[in-house]
Design a protein around this nucleic acid. Structure first.
Length: 430
RNA sequence: GCCGCCGUAGCUCAGCUAGGUAGAGCGGCUGGCUGUUAACCAGUUGGUCGUAGGUUCAAGUCCUACCGGCGGCGCCA
């Protein structure tokens, strides 16, 4: 017998093999038995299809002993049949068990807690595989966008020797007896790279030791970070909104089937067009005060403040020009108003902040003043200060949380589903 | 860091208010069933009630501590 090419189940469901012999391989998704027929629903990466085995078939004994999640290779004939849920089924001629599964622990009535315990198995679910497909596409669109705009992809270090922002949220580790940390942003390293490459970006993990117990925090998340030279705040917000609308438009177009299967609202992606609404921090405070919020100028927004602002816009928007005292040392001060720094957050409904960016302080003396003002140790930032010493240049950059973006795009209830193996304060297994 | 909730069979839960010696559904197993759609029907299997103390004649139930988990705030992307 000639070896038969392996068919993707989705192609069979699309009618490409009607009446023809095929082979499929995959895993047993459901098994239903009656006296004369065994129905095996088989899942591969592309879809699921029902296969039927009759008593007179030599594979009957194999079919009888097969279990849910066993891996199989099936050869048979495709039959159009209204009784099969996809419209097509395979009449089995040969069933080979590749790996017989023990009783699969995931059945019905699954609790969140249990599914997190068996995450390595739950990833097989239709829901998780749909999310992972969209995640992959969003990453592809991100790379496409930056390449198109002339950015060079670079690889920052994960081990770092000094604090980038506040030291309290860094994970420490022993490095041949020395104290090191896991990076919480590639920004400072990207800044060093713009002096040769001008426009750079990376997609890399960031680690944060924040003891946050919310549906929008991970201790390990993937950070999309560009940084580029000869640019100002206007350039920054323009590139950022272009990226977001590119990702949203392309995803709405190319992942329609996945988004619909996930039950997410595709229309909110389609309305993400440039330019985005932009308001200053001061305007945001005025809006909130008018709504009766207690926040005062100079205080940072709480989650409720962000939510109230985001609901008003109903789509991504920028808040910019923040008070100096609530932003990091590297933020560039407005030359005409030293109380303000050139920093911007992008906010979306329900999630709040998904990105922070801004112009970086490019004047050595101003930077040193800020380092002293915040009681940071100058020696920790020696190489960073050096960058202002040799051909300093106005530059900007931002960091976008990939999982927060996906949580918003796909209406996920919890950020943990935006990454296959989530790490949170209390969970790091599997 | 602060606050709230949860922990009983492989899984989902009831039992706790009012202390009296462990229940159901799903799964597994066995049998039945003329094509099922999370199949159905019958039977059966299955438990140191998170851990350790305490109160009591008696604790899954009341009390204390601890452990594990989930969420809210703060912080952040």
């Amino acid at each position: 017998m000639m070896p038969m090419p392996i068919a993707a189940i989705q192609d069979i469901l699309d009618g490409k093999y009607a009446g023809k012999p095929v082979s499929v391989r995959g895993w047993i998704y459901r098994k239903r038995e009656s006296k004369k027929t065994i129905f095996l629903v088989v899942r591969d990466a592309s879809g699921i299809i029902q296969c039927t085995v009759k008593t007179d078939n030599p594979s009957w004994t194999q079919a009888e002993k097969i279990t849910i999640e066993s891996s199989v290779m099936i050869t048979g004939t495709v039959k159009q049949d209204k009784r099969a849920s996809g419209g097509y089924e395979i009449t089995v001629e040969k069933l080979s068990i590749i790996g017989l599964a023990e009783t699969f622990p995931i059945t019905q009535d699954k609790s969140e807690e249990f599914l997190r315990d068996v995450r390595h198995l739950w990833l097989r679910s239709r829901r998780m595989s749909l999310i992972m497909r969209v995640r992959s596409e969003v990453l592809r669109f991100t790379h496409e966008f930056f390449r198109k705009e002339g950015f060079i992809e670079v690889s920052p270090p994960m081990f770092i020797s000094s604090a980038c922002e506040g030291g309290s949220t860094l994970f420490g580790l022993k490095y041949f007896g020395k104290d090191l940390y896991l990076t919480q942003s590639a920004q400072l390293y990207l800044e060093a790279l713009i002096y040769s490459l001008e426009k750079v970006y990376c997609v890399a993990p960031s680690f944060r030791a924040e003891k946050s117990r919310t549906i929008r925090h991970l201790t390990e998340y993937w950070h999309i970070e560009p940084e580029w030279a000869f640019a100002d705040m206007d350039d920054l917000m323009r590139v950022e909104e272009d990226l977001l609308s590119y990702i949203c438009q392309k995803t709405a177009e190319d992942c329609k089937r996945e988004i619909e299967s996930l039950g997410a609202d595709i229309s909110k992606l389609k309305v993400v067009n440039t330019p985005f609404p932009r308001i200053t921090y001061t305007e945001a405070i005025e809006k909130l005060t008018a709504k009766g919020f207690k926040i005062k100028w100079g205080e940072d927004f709480g989650y409720d403040d962000e939510k109230a602002l985001a609901e008003e816009f109903g789509k991504p928007f920028f808040v910019y020009a923040y008070p100096r005292q609530i932003k990091a040392f590297y933020c560039k001060t407005h030359r005409d108003n030293p109380d303000l720094v050139m920093s911007t957050d992008m906010l979306v409904p329900r999630i709040g902040e998904i990105s922070t960016g801004g112009a970086r302080e490019d004047d050595k003396e101003e930077l040193l003043r800020r380092i002293r003002e915040l009681d940071l140790r100058e020696e920790d930032y020696k190489w960073y200060i050096d960058l202002r010493r040799y051909g300093t240049v106005p530059h900007v950059g931002f960091g976008l949380g990939l999982e927060r973006l996906l949580t918003w795009m796909l209406d996920l209830e919890n950020i943990i589903d935006a990454i296959p193996f989530p790490r949170t304060t209390r969970r790091f297994y599997p």
